[in-house]
Design a protein around this nucleic acid. Structure first.
Lengths: 233, 233
DNA sequence: CAAATAAGTGTACAATTGACAAGTTTTACT
DNA sequence: AGTAAAACTTGTCAATTGTACACTTATTTG
């Protein structure tokens, strides 16, 4: 059958907003753009969707290419479609946000893409509309992490409660009461206490926990509000 | 500057999942497809993104074309990008979901598109991946309406508490306790009681309410959980 | 063995949620 | 005119959840 008439075709790309957490700060993985225009400027990792791929597949491919990782948390965020967002040629971008364990990445780091982790407080100026994409991704991360046990994806398989609390405090740029925080996360029954401790950050050491993966999958949609209720105005 | 080399271009469309509520059931506005392939089958209202448009603009245009309405609630949902989702030619679809006051629509109805409202329980077989789009839109509606005062968009400017409760009961396919429901929605301070009553559905009549638009915009992100907490397993 | 460091733990009060039923207004019918 | 019917409106109490708040414990180092 014949093609659709009188319509313009355009390029379709994916761009990935990749979050990591190094124990102290939330970070974003950016690359130096390898092609014109804007070659050399910082940008999100992206690429064109190939003929046999859907956007999810393209995002997975690109993420694997950059980090070597598979099986990471990846979620479609938003599609950016301004007619002039790429000055060379009309390109629509389907954005994804990814959460990775930054330590796994370090092992597999490839220099090929001139990639670098930037703390969210020090994001450089980005090409095109990538800053807007990052902004939206941050908002979605905060939104979603308040309702679902998402942030575990940023931690190693074994983590401690102080690490977890620190991560939440970074994401929400606030601090929580230790006792209330512990009680809340443990009440989900999602965490399994291990026998060993992390001695890295204190003399006493903090017990490791692991996710209970059965519960994790089953209860992903019914987590709880980590954010304390704001005082009534 | 020269175009990107060795990349394939494709068509980009938008498709709108349009919800309405007639007082008894949630409905979806579908059209009979006017072009080949699949001409005559039921489908979501959609169209190609034009050269000067971004996807939001295209969705607004298409919604206006079909319903005559402007200023309706419209939100980008998801982008569908399977390489073979349209058998004629690769087409990527950015989907939007819209909430409209079904009564406003009826006044402006145009027969041009062979549009019809279908109760969500009686959706016919749809072309391409449109059924999947509808499924995702329903899930998002339920998800989001539990957290934000979204469903007011489906009601007339003046509505009654029983109407509102009925709408929530339709969306969640359940029933709520009247007293608790009333207390919850009134506690948001989003509703302003009117002096007049709707005598349409009872002898006593139910007071009309209006949204307090200042509060509505300001507190959209901090609504409350309408869904009762599920019993602990 | 004393000091330093960070981890771990409990209680009381306040706010919210959930279960539950009787009274009110109006119309229509006898 | 009085009564029955229909649907709207409203309140209380118990249970749960959220919040504020401070001391003890384990371990290492000097």
């Amino acid at each position: 059958m014949t093609k659709y008439q009188n319509q313009t075709r355009l390029l379709a790309a994916v761009d990935c907003i990749i979050f990591g957490f190094d124990g102290n700060a939330l970070k974003l993985l950016l690359v130096q753009r390898a092609i014109q225009p804007e070659k050399g400027r910082w940008s999100l990792m992206g690429g064109f969707i190939q003929p046999a791929e859907d956007a999810d597949t393209a995002a997975l491919r690109i993420l694997k290419k950059l980090t070597g990782l598979e099986g990471v948390y990846l979620e479609q965020l938003h599609t950016f479609s301004g007619p002039h967002r790429d000055p060379i040629e009309r390109t629509l971008s389907v954005t994804y946000f990814a959460l990775i364990d930054i330590h796994q990445y370090e092992k597999q780091l490839s220099d090929e893409y001139h990639a670098e982790w930037f703390p969210l407080t020090e994001i450089p100026s980005l090409i095109f509309d990538h800053s807007e994409m990052v902004k939206m991704a941050r908002e979605k991360l905060r939104y979603k992490a308040a309702l679902h046990p998402l942030l575990f994806e940023l931690l190693p398989k074994k983590f401690t409660l102080p690490q977890l609390q620190n991560l939440y405090e970074c994401v929400y740029d606030t601090s929580f009461d230790k006792r209330n925080f512990t009680r809340k996360v443990l009440s989900t029954r999602l965490l399994v206490k291990q026998k060993d401790k992390d001695k890295g950050s204190s003399k006493k050491g903090a017990f490791f926990y692991k996710l209970d993966n059965r519960h994790y999958k089953a209860h992903f949609h019914s987590f709880l509000n980590i954010i304390p209720n704001p005082p009534i105005k």
